[in-house]
Amino acid sequence: MKEPALQRIFYGALALLGLCALGVGLAKAGWSGVAFALFAFMTLGGAVMCIWERSVVRSAFALMATFTGVAGLFVLLEADFLAMAQILIYVGGILALLLFAVMLTPPDLNERKLSRLAAGALFVGAGALYLGLKITDTAHWFVRGAPLDGNVAASGSAERIGVGFLAAGPYQTSAGTELGYVVAFELAAIVLTVALVAAVYIARRKPSDLQPEEKAG
């Protein structure tokens, strides 16, 4: 099949699916359902596009949609700080890094194989679907919070997270006892520092230092 035709079919199908999702969301839970459907569609559609696209650059941009969608979902889940962090770090940081990598390596437009794609999708999809169905069959969620119905929680999560990060032990708040996360915070800081230093170190090695033996000989 010709590439443009495939492309058209793919995006057509994707758009159709998106519309369906929105419709279902609306029917199920009104406008909040639409919001959810929108973000979910952004997330998943972005991922699908990312896998589908031949060009790495386009894939990377598709991934941006995914990250944004996830951020949206975070918002719906009343985790606004996380949503911000998501956009800042993922969209702003990681994606930029990815694009750098893309630019530093040569493009290979013939690397995508539809057969592999189909096989992978089939098997993973089958497995996921199977497990998903099994889980929905058997799992019992212990849901304590109320379903989201437009009532945004009173206190923003950014503040709670900030306080939590700096507390060394359990402390009392209006919502009850919260735990202190300062150790995790410190740890994260150290990991990040070490990782970045290491990344810089690895990346700056001369290629000649890393020649494998058989190529050197």
């Binding site: 993973v124 497995g127 199977y130 497990l131 099994k134 889980i135 058997t138």
Partner: peptide, 14 residues
């Protein structure tokens, strides 16, 4: 890893 995970999960659920 994926295959194994699927199998394990399937087994656990079953």
């Amino acid at each position: 890893a994926v295959g194994g995970a699927v199998l394990t999960a399937a087994w656990l659920i079953l």
